[in-house]
Write a protein that binds this DNA or RNA. Structure first.
Length: 472
RNA sequence: GGCGCUGUAGCCAAGUGGCUCAAGGCGAAGGUCUGCAAAACCUUUAUUCGUCGGUUCGAAUCCGACCGGCGCCUCCA
């Protein structure tokens, strides 16, 4: 049984999709005004792991992630860089898709853009006005928070407290300081769309209501996003969608914890701001994913070089095993001993970890336990039937590769088009082996050291010497 | 001020009433292998869960107080 911690009820609940086996899931995506940062990456990776696990469980997941391609920050950037705002959005949309791919995040089924849904957005705003939940003032449209009874139910706030603690700018046009923009009147030079209220652009919250409804229906299963979106963004989405449709908006709300740097919030002003793009130059996608997966998605995560370095190191254990498996599978020893191994135990452990509110740290522990047990089995038994190796690989393919994305068998394969390097290296290995036989250790060590300096590591083992190339 | 999260070994981090008097990763120590290394693999590494009380047959896990850290309430994943 899969249970999920639901922000709105503050409880773990059994997951029951509306239309088995269909699961409709919406995740708040980026505003495409810059390269996304490592904190965004955490949300994207953890929602990817959740999505992959749902698929592993046999659900048919429709995964939608919006791209906010019209917004104040984009306009600001376009002015700074003296570009068209759509050019800014296009550039960073492209960059977003590239980085997502590098992080081994599965593509969403749909990446809806705000600018491509103006009809839906305008219709939704009109509906809210018609039903009395919104009002227009001189080209702007605001949502009237006082008309929606349950305002604050997601974030646990109430209107009175919000007003008394108001650090909100006073806007003469608003009836209530908490009212928020649905439609913003365009200023001179800003991008605009025609609407019944004049030229303007949508407010931030309305696009998610309009696009989630357009692609997933009025009520859908899972809505996820960063912790900081609970208020006001998601609160406002609920207010908009439920007021317009008269139906429950979302069944399960999932929120990701924040990523801090040295226990401080990441921010440009503190100078501790890192884009995913920068981090990917230093560490592998698998290491980033493992580092994130080793912390529960909802808790805070303190990000550091050491964290990623230790993940990278931990990964070597899995990569070595993967390499070993491929080697043995290639040998195809069909006459070896069949080894009893309790694959089911690990499968059950993995599933019960992930079933418990996507406890990926526990799931990672299962993978490492599994690797240790397998290594032990191999160490105890020289002549194992290939069936064992195939089963091991299959398990890892489903879990570490398929769900967590912390392992990539393709990486442990030797580069296929590099036979010259391979032949030359093997030649040197042969020379070195001969030197060793003659006890000419000065020469054999020289060969080893020289190769190391060009990035080829020799490994003496029982069945001779193998090498590996250090990849950048 | 309101709402919420959090304090577990040198570091990161699961576990939220008995099966776990505490997973996993990094680090450290020992071992196997080796001409020596490296790598790999194996083993070991918290009688204890911020502090003090309480509830209970039984608590890291529930309750209370206290001491720390953090987030949201304003654009932000």
């Amino acid at each position: 049984m899969l249970s999920i911690y639901n922000t709105i009820t503050r409880k773990k609940e059994e997951f029951k999709p509306i239309n088995l086996p269909q699961v409709n899931m919406y995740v708040c995506g980026p505003t495409v005004y810059d390269y996304f940062h490592i904190g965004n990456a955490r949300s994207f990776i953890m929602s990817d792991i959740i999505r992959r696990y749902l698929e592993y469980k046999g659900f048919n997941v429709k995964f939608v992630m919006n791209l906010t391609d019209v917004d104040d920050k984009i306009i600001k950037k376009s002015i700074e860089e003296n570009k068209d705002s759509s050019a800014v959005a296009d550039h960073f949309t492209k960059a977003f898709l590239e980085d997502i791919q590098k992080l081994k995040i599965k593509k969403a089924d749909i990446y809806p853009k705000a600018t491509a849904h103006m009809h839906e957005i305008i219709d939704l705003i009109q509906k809210l006005i018609d039903k009395g939940f919104a009002y227009s003032v001189d080209g702007n449209v605001f949502y009237d928070v006082s008309k929606f009874d349950n305002y604050g139910k997601l974030s646990g706030k109430n209107i009175e407290e919000l007003i008394s603690g108001a650090r909100i700018e006073i806007n003469e046009e608003k009836k209530n300081p908490l009212d928020f923009s649905l439609w913003k009147k365009a200023k001179e030079g800003e991008p605009y769309w025609e609407s019944p209220w004049g030229k303007g652009r949508p407010g931030w919250h309305i696009e998610c209501s309009a696009m989630s409804c357009a692609h997933l229906g009025e009520t859908f299963d899972i809505h996820a996003g960063g912790n900081d979106l609970i208020f006001p963004h998601h609160e406002n989405e609920i207010a908009q969608s439920e007021a317009a449709n008269g139906k429950k908006f979302v069944n399960y709300w999932i929120h990701f914890g924040f990523l801090n740097i040295n226990n401080e919030k990441m921010s440009k002003s503190l100078g501790n701001f890192f884009t995913a793009r920068e981090i990917l130059k230093l560490f592998s996608a698998e290491a980033i994913r493992l580092a994130f997966a080793q912390t529960h998605y909802a808790g805070p995560l303190n990000f550091s070089d050491e964290l990623l370095a230790s993940a990278e190191k931990g990964l070597e254990k899995l990569n070595n095993l993967a390499e070993k498996l491929d080697k043995e599978i290639k040998k195809n020893n069909t006459s070896g001993n069949v080894r009893a191994f309790d694959f089911n135990k690990f499968k059950n452990d993995f599933e019960s970890a992930m079933d418990d509110d996507f406890n990926s740290p526990q799931a990672c522990a299962v993978i490492f336990d599994f690797a240790r047990e397998v290594n032990r089995a191999i160490a105890e038994n020289e002549n194992l039937n290939v069936k064992f190796y195939l089963d091991v690989k299959e398990f890892l393919e489903k879990t570490a590769v398929g769900v967590l994305g912390i392992l990539d068998f393709a990486k442990s394969q030797p580069p296929p088009d590099d036979s010259l390097t391979e032949d030359l290296t093997n030649l040197l290995i042969k020379l070195r082996t001969d030197a060793k036989k003659e006890k000419n250790f000065a020469l054999s060590d020289k060969i080893r050291d020289e190769l190391k300096s060009i990035g080829i590591i020799l490994q003496d083992g029982k069945d001779g010497t193998t090498f590996k190339v250090i990849k950048k």
